[in-house]
Every structure is written in structure tokens, then in C-alpha cells.
Design a protein around this nucleic acid. Structure first.
Lengths: 214, 214
DNA sequence: CCTGAACCTGACCATACGGTCAGAAAAAGA
DNA sequence: TCTTTTTCTGACCGTATGGTCAGGTTCAGG
């Protein structure tokens, strides 16, 4: 059992690389179908068709529909949290919250399906990620609230309730993904590059002026 | 056929009163189940149980699951539109937008399930109410955009993009219904009367200052 | 070339779902 | 009271779904 031989590692790596690629294909298809139809409306057959795989193969990689859904949601939560970094290390709210809005708007633009799945999950009472809400998200929120309170204490922004400010940030940015269809309908078509710039600028302008940081 | 005899009218009225009451019971149960499980996840049996009626009776009042869903969504859209009145006849953005925020926050508080069903419907591409989006909602939006532009021209607020301002308003207020579970988790329990007042005040403060109306 | 493990899949199964229907019960009308 | 209409419901049906499984295929390792 020379498990750390170069050949062995290479082959194992190729194996698991294929595995990860197939998993990624399935996850992408699943995200799309779950976003369009919701958990209840999605079918394994539909996901399989979209992934170009036989249905039974899905069950080889993900034991149950719920396990697959779980994997999709967790991947989204990771992306969601990464945007949090944008707020770190900023000298003040203009930079910190501005960058956070940019990051979250970019997520809405690049991962609209992920955002929808997340929204759907939370709307239905977060049956799968309740523990994340109570641990990771709670901790993250507490940290940002502290930062905002510090900025307020330093006179860098108006004394706005930090929790509700975060809700406004989340809501305003995610809205462009979750309600993207409504926006596109009113807009008469998909948002152009310029439209997205206007959107970002508008949200930042209103929020930053709203907290007295402009 | 003395159709307009008093007795006749009374009996017809009682009949249709019963009918309406049963329909209302079914609609309330359906709204709750659709909000919790989504269209695909909801079952007629579950709705029937919650309404305290045999499943077959549901099909007597609503031919199909989709017809029932349609009725639920349309009822919500009515409530949604009624809040629009709050913005009318206001002398300026402080009163108009302030009242609109109050009205929409109140909807999020009183009709969280309705809001969730609406959100779910739009997120899934508005298969049922697409025509409403393109007609009624589009007209309503155009009207408010005109009002906002007038306020801007009159120097009563900053020259904020009116469309994106509306999105911020919708997003920030509906968030308290659609993501109510997340908020309650972070809050450590349901929002109290005082919490709701803080929420309303915070949204109004940030938005109104954000558009230069404070 | 052989072996065993990992990977893949068509065919199948039990269940739960939306919807139907015959006919009972209740109410209205004469 | 008798008839007609409306309301209600248990039992049933066809279908689609999530999930299983036996057996095939591929591929690394010796």
C-alpha cells in the first residue's frame, strides 16, 4: 500500500477530478431546476435531463433529492458569506458598505438561481439550513453590527439601527435576483450593462446618503 | 320568475354568503399551505385538512389546483395594489413615500403568507400573473415614476433613479415578510410591537434621508 | 491479461398525487 | 309533501414521482 506514490496520487486525482466534475454538472442543473420550480416542483428526472445523465446516476452521486438540495443550498451559502469579506478592513461605511453592496449586486447578477434557491429555502422556514442561520449567519451578523456601531460611535455615519440597515442591504441587493423577472418585465427586457451600473449606483447612493455617509 | 322579490333575494344572498364563506376558508388555507410549501410542494389534501373539508369538496369550489392557486395570487395582488393609494395625493416625498413604506410594512406584518406566495410566483417567472405584471403593475409603476420625477423637478428630493427607488422600497418592505423567518432567527424570536416600530422607522429614515427628503 | 473496485444505467416498484364520479344529504321551490 | 337544484363526500383511477437494484461497463493496479 504505497498510497503516497506519485502514480497513485495522479490516478486518484484524475478519478476524483472526474467525480467532482460530474457532481458539479449535477449541482448546476439542480440549482437551475430548484430555482425555477422550487423544491416541491423540481423532479429528479428534470434535473437528470438538464444534466444529460440518466436519473439513476443522480442517485449514485446524491442518495436522495433532499441530499442534492442540501448540497445546492450549502454551496450558495458559501458564496453568500464570501461577499461578507468585502465589508472587512474598510476604514468607514462609504468604502465598507459600498463594497458590500457592489459584491452582493454582483452575486445577484452572476448567481440569480442560487439567490432564488436561498430565498425559497428561507421563505419556507429554512428546513435545511436552520442551523446555519443560528450559528454562522448569527455570528457574522453580530460582527457586522459591531462594526457599524463603531462607525456610528466614531461619527462616520448616522445612528441607524444596524440590524435593520443590514436587512435593507440584503433586501435591496437580492431583490435584483429574486425578483429579476418582475424587474425585467417592467424594464422591457433584461438589464443591460449600463442598467446594472445604474442599479448599483442607485442602491449605493440611496443607502449611503441614507446613513449619512455622503 | 319574480327574481327581485325580497324573499328570493334574501335566499340567494344567504346561499352565496355561505358560498363565499367556504371559498374564503379554502383560500385562507390555500394561502397558508402555498406559502409554506410552494406550489409544487403544496397538496390538495393538505389544504383540505387545514380547511377542515374533504378534498373532493375543494374541487367542487375550485376545479383544479392551479385555479385555486390563481385565486390566491389574484387576491394578494389586490391587497398589494391597495397600498399604492397611500402614495397618492401626497404633497411631497416625505409624506407620500413615508406613507407607502408604512402601508407596505403593514402588509408584510399582516399578510406574510400572501407576500410569500407573491414572491414565490414572481421568482418562478410569474407563470400565472405575467399579464398583470405587463398591464396593471406596469401602468401603476409608470404613474409613480412620473410622480417621483415631478418631485425631483420641484426640488423636493434628490434626482434618484425612480425605478430603482421603487425596487428599494418594494425590497426593503417585503423582506420583512418573505425573509421573516431569517429575521426572527437573528432576532431570537418574533418581532414585538416595538421591533416593528423600529423597523418601520429605520426603513423610513434611511430611505427618506437617502433620497434627500429629510 | 486478470481482478476488483468504482462507476453507470435500464427496468422496475411502491406510493402519493391531482382529479373524477356516483350518489347521498341538504336546501329551495312549488 | 313532492320535485328540483345545490352542496357535499367516500371511494376510486391513471399517472408521475422518488427511489431501488441487478447487472453491465470502465479503469486503476498487479
Amino acid at each position: 500500500m504505497t498510497e503516497n506514490s506519485a502514480i497513485n496520487r495522479t490516478k486518484i486525482k484524475r478519478r476524483s477530478a472526474n467525480r467532482r466534475a460530474t457532481e458539479a454538472t449535477i449541482l448546476a442543473a439542480a440549482e437551475s431546476v430548484f430555482a425555477e420550480a422550487g423544491f416541491g416542483g423540481a423532479t429528479m428526472q428534470l434535473i437528470a435531463d438538464m444534466a444529460g445523465l440518466p436519473k439513476a446516476n443522480l442517485h449514485y452521486y446524491f442518495a436522495t433529492k433532499e441530499a442534492l438540495y442540501r448540497a445546492v443550498v450549502q454551496r450558495i451559502f458559501q458564496i453568500w458569506l464570501e461577499a461578507a469579506d468585502a465589508m472587512d478592513g474598510a476604514p468607514g461605511p462609504t468604502e465598507g458598505i459600498g463594497a458590500y453592496i457592489d459584491a452582493k449586486m454582483e452575486i445577484s447578477r452572476r448567481h440569480p438561481n442560487g439567490s432564488k434557491v436561498w430565498a425559497s429555502e428561507v421563505m419556507h422556514g429554512a428546513p435545511v439550513i436552520q442551523d446555519y442561520l443560528e450559528t454562522t449567519l448569527r455570528d457574522w451578523t453580530a460582527g457586522r453590527v459591531a462594526v457599524i456601531n463603531r462607525w456610528i460611535a466614531e461619527g462616520k455615519m448616522a445612528p441607524v439601527n444596524p440590524d435593520h440597515l443590514l436587512y435593507i442591504l440584503w433586501a435591496s441587493t437580492q431583490h435584483y435576483a429574486d425578483f429579476g423577472h418582475q424587474i425585467e418585465t417592467l424594464n422591457g427586457g433584461p438589464l443591460t450593462e449600463a442598467d446594472w451600473e445604474t442599479a448599483k449606483a442607485s442602491v449605493k447612493e440611496v443607502v449611503l446618503r441614507g446613513i449619512g455617509a455622503i
